[in-house]
Amino acid sequence: MKIIYVDPQKCTGCKVCEIVCSLFHENEINPTKSRIYVTSWEHDGIDIPIVCQQCEDPPCEEVCPTHAIFRDVQTGAMLINEAACIGCRMCINACPFGAPTVRSDTGEVIKCDLCEGEPKCVEFCEPKALQYIPASKAAILKKRTAAEKYEELMKKVLAPAG
């Protein structure tokens, strides 16, 4: 199963993901209707995209009183059955990331559906702060990114003298 892997260090804060998400889902451009959200602390140069992680054990699914949230067997995405959703927003409360969104106009809850396996936010994310990769690889990637910080240092330490 693939997930959207987020690397905040690469995020430039451009919000291209929010723009394309709302265009491809809603046929309009409106970040308040985007399924991905970039949290920015511009004064400190910090940008962290927040998007559904399609958890193995999703609290949103568990908390939903009408069982409106279910897993798409094809992509592994947690989807919302709109007919069953009563708009109680408990899924947002239960999610540790607050990943589902409430639409600014209708009040409906919306969330990342992985664009049927071809997430548009990933496609347009040039800095590759977002990547669509198997969950198992994501863990390895995280390790590699962390290890890269030590790489330079290790090279210096291990380099032969002179």
């Binding site: 260090q9 690469k10 430039t12 804060g13 451009c14 919000k15 291209v16 723009i19 511009e42 140069g45 940008d47 347009f124 040039e126 800095p127």
Partner: peptide, 18 residues
Amino acid sequence: LKMVACLGCAVHCEHYYV
């Protein structure tokens, strides 16, 4: 520290510096 961008821009030509 990293490059930052304006809205909707893939060129991200600004440095965030410290």
